[in-house]
Design a protein around this nucleic acid. Structure first.
Length: 427
RNA sequence: GUGGCUGUAGCUCAAUCGGUUAGAGCGCCGGACUGUGGCUCCGGAGGUUGCGGGUUCGAUUCCCGUCAGCCACCCCA
């Protein structure tokens, strides 16, 4: 035994790679339907690309080291800084709005758990250069259509959306929360129902010095956490909610309203979100968020010095893969074989090789046994390979210039002229 | 980084109180089966019981350490 893959890293055996390719395929297909262009960047980046924006926290979770040229480098933990650099460098030349997507492999050094490894692939879709809610709606529609592309319905998954500006506005004017306290208060709302102690701790940390404000914030947040209808309706009617309303109306017009659910508990951990935020969850909520995103209008300015509003999301392959397996929507590895060729005796091998090569030249996928073996053995291998049919060539067939084509599902077989078989016509 | 639980064949699991050569099913390989697969029967390969140490006449079993996995925390691509 020569050990195993590093902790948090995956070996992709054919069945697993089939699932991954199935996921990538659906991602690319939806991105194409939405008119997004694919880009990519280096998996290894200068360490500063992340430290400047993200600070110490991220750095501790980075795969970072010094290369042989004494450069401080890191495996990319997210794609957005690379995207910001690339867009920033050609900001003048690119026609706005920019619709780009990527499927980078991302790395992060932390203890692994279910749905959380040290490496994953993540679809990133971003619209850059459009500040209006139409872009937000477009991005959210893409998220929903990806779920639909996997056969998931509005009973399987839910897109929960919020807008930080609505809450910030309410907290500021209704509960005297200062700008500097905002993130701490919002983080208390995150996971309100799941982890009461954590909620309390965060709230205490943010407003501990002011019991009255803390109490009023607490009662307000608990209304949100319990999805109090009147409170939600009141917030949605405020001027600050205009973008969210418009966004919802657009998704409704696309016929995707069933998937969308306003939920002010959605906060998102990243500090750089500036407006609408959303997460895609499985309806049972047994897994982590499948996808998360939102609007980050100031990030490119901070990284690349170009003022461009952005909205986008990231969707990882790990949680999604688990959800698909739960729903038995994972793709079987399909046989890529069109036929399995069988030589009855040793003198039939050369003709079979000739036929195999002719078929392969025509683009037909064929395999044959690499060892002389009884027909039964060869048929067994053909079936195990998942070939739809076996083509049997023996002395009698060669004399008659035919081949026996056996359907491996039904067991039915018939003679087909060799001239036809050679062209890839099996009936 | 912290804590809890768990590590036996490729997979799922056995192994009496600490007792002789660690077993079974599935899978894999071969045979029964010399021009027709899936079924059945028979046989075979495959283990440093995660690794290292300790206790003991003797450890898969008990103890310690370590590594890995799962779960929770921290955090959340």
């Amino acid at each position: 035994m020569q050990g195993q893959a590093l902790p948090g890293f995956r070996d992709f055996y054919p069945e697993e790679l089939a699932l991954r390719n199935h996921i990538f395929g659906a991602w690319r297909d939806v991105a194409r339907r939405y008119g997004f262009q694919e880009y990519d960047g280096p998996p290894l980046e200068p360490l500063e690309l992340y430290t400047e924006k993200s600070g110490e926290e991220i750095v501790q979770q980075l795969y970072a080291f010094q290369d042989k040229g004494d450069r401080q480098v890191a495996l990319r933990p997210e794609m957005t800084p690379t995207l910001a650099r690339m867009v920033g460098a050609r900001a003048q030349a690119l026609k706005k709005p920019i619709r780009w997507f990527a499927i980078p492999q991302l790395f992060r050094y932390e203890r692994q758990q279910r749905g959380r490894l040290r490496e994953h692939f993540q679809l990133n879709m971003d619209i850059i250069g459009e500040a209006g809610p139409a872009a937000d709606a477009e991005i959210m529609a893409a998220v929903i259509d990806i779920a639909r592309a996997f056969g998931l319905t509005s009973t399987d998954v839910r897109l929960r959306v919020s807008d930080r500006r609505i809450l910030a506005n309410e907290l500021k004017h209704g509960h005297a929360v200062a700008d500097g306290e905002m993130l701490g208060v919002l983080s208390a709302l995150d996971k309100w129902g799941d982890e009461p102690a954590l909620t309390e701790r965060r709230l205490q940390h943010a407003l501990g010095d002011s019991p009255e404000r803390k109490a009023s914030v607490h009662s307000f947040l608990s209304l949100l956490a319990n999805e109090d209808r009147a409170t939600v309706a009141r917030l949605l009617a405020t001027p600050a909610a205009e973008q969210l309303r418009e966004c919802g109306a657009r998704l409704e017009a696309m016929g995707l309203g069933d998937f969308v659910h306003v939920d002010f508990r959605i906060v998102r951990g990243l500090a750089y979100y500036t407006g609408i935020v959303f997460e895609l969850f499985d309806a049972k909520r047994s897994l982590r968020a499948i996808c998360g995103g939102g609007r980050y209008d100031t990030l490119i300015q901070e990284i690349a010095g170009v003022d461009l509003p952005c909205v986008g999301f990231g969707m990882g392959d790990v949680v999604l893969g688990e959800l698909l397996k739960e729903h038995a929507k994972a793709a079987e590895a399909p046989s890529r074989l069109d036929a399995f060729l069988i030589a009855v005796g040793g003198e039939d091998v050369a003709p079979v090789l000739k036929l195999a090569h002719e078929l392969r030249d025509r683009g037909v996928a064929v395999e044959y046994a690499l060892r002389d073996a009884p027909i039964r053995k060869q048929l067994e291998l053909a079936a195990a390979r998942g070939a739809p049919r076996a083509v049997i060539v023996g002395p009698d067939e060669r004399k008659a210039k035919v081949a026996v084509v056996r359907d491996l599902k039904t067991g039915r077989q018939r003679k087909v002229a060799l001239a036809q078989v050679r062209k890839g016509v099996f009936k």
